[in-house]
Simulated assay, not measured.
Amino acid sequence: MRNHRVAFAVSGSLMSIFFLILVNYLTTPGEIWFVHPAFALIQWPIALYFAGTGRIKAYSAASTAVILLYLAYQNVVHSPDYPWMLYAGFAVIWWPILMYAGRFAGTLAMAFAGSFCIILYYGMLNVLLSPQFPWIVFPAYAVLWWPMSIYFARTRQWFAFALCGSLLTSALFIVVNAISSPNDVWAIYPIFAVVWWPLSMYYFVVKKRTV
C-alpha cells in the first residue's frame, strides 16, 4: 500500500509539473514561473517516501537538497551578480545536521560548536561580500543565546542567566551605537531598560531566599 501511494505521488507530481510547464510555455513563454509550484509538488513524493517510512533524517537531507537546488536556481536566474544563496543555504543545511546529530544536538558542546561555525561562516561572508557594514554582530548576538541558554537552564542559575543576557544585549547596543552613530550616544536608553531584568531577578528571587 505504501509503495502504491509513493508511486501515485510521483506520477501525480510529474503530470502536474508537465501541465504547468505546458501552461507556462503557452501563456507566458518569456517568464519561467512553473519552477515555483514545481518546487512544492516535488516535496509531496519525497515526504511520502522518507517521512512516511519513518526515515526522518533521510527526509531532512533529501528535502534540504531540493531546497538548495531551488535557491541556487533563483540566485543564478534572478540575481547572478550577488551570491545571496550562500547566506540562506548555510542556514538551511543545519536542519539535517541537527537531525543526524541525534542526542548530541541538544548538548552544550554542540551549541558551542554550532555557534562558533555560524559566527565564523557569516563573519567571512561579511568580510568578503559586504565589508561596508559589520552586520555579523546581529547573527552573532542571536546564536550566542544558544549555548548560554543551555548552560544556565541545566545549572538553573537564573540570576546569572539574566545577568549574562543583559550584558550581552548591552554589548550589542554599545557596538551598534559605536558603529552606526558614534557622535550620538543613544545606547544608554535601551541599556537602562535591559538592566531591570537582572535587578528584578536579584531582588525578587535571590534576595527573597536570604530573607
Score class of each variant (00 low, 15 high):
M1S: 15
R2E: 13
H4N: 11
H4C: 07
V6C: 00
F8W: 13
G12R: 13
G12S: 12
S16K: 07
S16L: 14
F18L: 15
L20V: 06
L26A: 03
L26C: 02
T27Q: 10
T27C: 09
P29W: 08
G30W: 08
I32G: 01
W33D: 02
V35Q: 12
A38K: 06
F39T: 13
I42T: 08
I46A: 02
L48C: 00
G52W: 02
K57F: 03
Y59A: 00
A61Q: 05
A61W: 09
S63A: 10
T64N: 03
T64A: 06
I67C: 09
I67E: 06
L71G: 04
Y73V: 06
V76M: 06
V76F: 07
H78G: 00
H78W: 10
P80E: 04
D81Y: 03
Y82G: 01
M85W: 10
Y87Q: 02
G89T: 09
G89I: 07
G89K: 11
G89N: 08
G89D: 08
F90L: 06
F90Q: 04
I97F: 08
L98W: 09
M99I: 04
G102V: 08
R103C: 01
G106V: 01
G106H: 07
A109F: 03
A111F: 00
A113T: 10
A113G: 07
S115V: 04
F116Q: 04
C117E: 06
C117R: 05
Y122F: 10
G123H: 02
M124R: 05
N126L: 00
V127R: 06
L129Q: 03
L129V: 01
Q132G: 11
Q132I: 13
Q132D: 15
F133E: 12
W135L: 01
I136L: 08
V137A: 08
P139Q: 03
A140Q: 01
Y141H: 15
Y141T: 09
A142S: 13
W145T: 06
M148L: 15
S149Y: 14
I150H: 01
I150L: 10
Y151C: 04
R154S: 02
W158P: 03
F159D: 01
A160N: 12
F161Y: 15
L163T: 14
L163K: 14
C164S: 15
G165S: 11
G165N: 09
S166M: 07
S166C: 11
L168C: 08
L168S: 10
A171G: 11
L172G: 02
F173P: 05
V175N: 08
V175L: 12
N177I: 13
N183W: 14
V185E: 14
V185G: 05
W186C: 10
A187Q: 15
Y189T: 11
P190Y: 10
I191V: 09
A193F: 15
A193L: 15
V194K: 11
V195G: 03
S200K: 15
V206Y: 06
K207V: 00
K207P: 00
R209M: 10
R209H: 11
